[in-house]
């Protein structure tokens, strides 16, 4: 059961603003989905290695050779609030 408090906590971690109605709905939906997901608990997984990658690769590296960077006008073109050649944001210290 994912209650209101948990939904709000997770939403905060995920930086998502939810309306009261969304919080309600999310609480019900996440509970249903997680109930289904928890069927995994039936399985005996002791000693089973976790899989993070299905490709059997190691040491994929690139040479330390510079490639041209991107012109600054282009870098800042899609920025919502460019200023002084940088990306302006509300201060995290505010």
């Amino acid at each position: 059961m994912i209650d209101r408090e948990q939904v709000l906590h997770v939403a905060r971690l995920a930086r998502l603003e939810l309306t009261d109605e969304e919080v309600e709905r999310m609480s019900g939906e996440l509970t249903t989905i997680l109930d289904h997901v928890e069927r995994m608990n039936e399985l005996d997984l002791d000693g089973v290695e976790p899989t993070s990658h299905v490709v059997a690769l190691e040491n994929v590296l690139r040479a330390d050779e510079p490639r041209p960077s991107w012109p600054r006008e282009q870098v800042l073109e899609p920025a919502p609030d460019p200023a002084e050649g940088a990306f302006r944001v509300p201060s995290p210290q505010a």
Binding site: R15, E17, P78, A79, P80, V89, P90, P92, A94
Partner: peptide, 20 residues
């Protein structure tokens, strides 16, 4: 996250609110 590209919501100058 509204920092480098894409739309940014108005948030009265609060960073966390801007993200959310």
């Amino acid at each position: 996250d509204g920092v480098r590209f894409g739309p940014r919501a108005d948030a009265n100058g609060d960073l966390i609110e801007m993200y959310e």
